[in-house]
Design a protein around this nucleic acid. Sequence first.
DNA 1: AATGGCTCCAACCGCGAATGG
DNA 2: GCCATTCGCGGTTGGAGCCAT
Length: 249
Amino acid sequence: MGRQPCCDKLGVKKGPWTAEEDKKLVNFMLTHGQCCWRAVPKLAGLRRCGKSCRLRWTNYLRPDLKRGLLNEAEEQLVIDLHASLGNRWSKIAARLPGRTDNEIKNHWNTHIKKKLIKMGIDPITHEPLHKQVTTPQETPSSANDQQNVNIPEHGVSGNDNGSSATENSSSNEAQSLIEVNANSDDDPLVSYILSDTFLEDWSWNFPAVEDNYSDFGLSSTSSEDNSSAWFMDCKDFGVEDFELGNCIN
DNA sequence: AATGGCTCCAACCGCGAATGG
DNA sequence: GCCATTCGCGGTTGGAGCCAT
């Protein structure tokens, strides 16, 4: 069956978001809470499709988001989770408070993948690369990748600070990564994080860096609250007044 | 200083899942 | 059960910024 476009193509803006658009979306979301995304652009006065609004909010504007590169512990957790879950970025992100699937996916593709390859670990199977059978059809570049494994020194190419900070990782680190991957099922912490119990346990805190939404013309009260209270407050806002009662569960 | 190549990440696209009538 | 609609996910891309020459 023919699928309709997610939004009316005419008059819908695309590309990078402006500060004004961010302001409108944040104001709307903080006032009404998460709602039926299709209605958001119209109600918020944005010329964007709902999909774009959802993406912007979840990946960039949400107050509980952490900023900056993943730290060592988070990176390790992503590797462990990827080993058991594969490319299910949303599932992985669900286990890392304050991180988005897009962010983790990007970090995986730009940093962790290279790091694992350099350590001699296949980023897909999480098995040591030298164990894998080299087929004659392999490209020269992939063959080089395999030849260059277990050479932790000097970067792949002039890389950014993110990867260069980790590129002088010692062989001990590589070894510990391999061990953790091999024993993740035995690690109680990893086992716990991999379990559904983790997701159901909302006692863990969002150590997110609180953004200052005063730039958006908002009062500072939301940033003074803990990071989840603002959303609960939004639900208590008179949604009926906006005919949105059926949108918020 | 110019420029060409590379890296990174925000945003888009298309598909499948979920949901409701 | 069928169909239409909406949502969410994962893969991909475009362009800004960085770096080496």
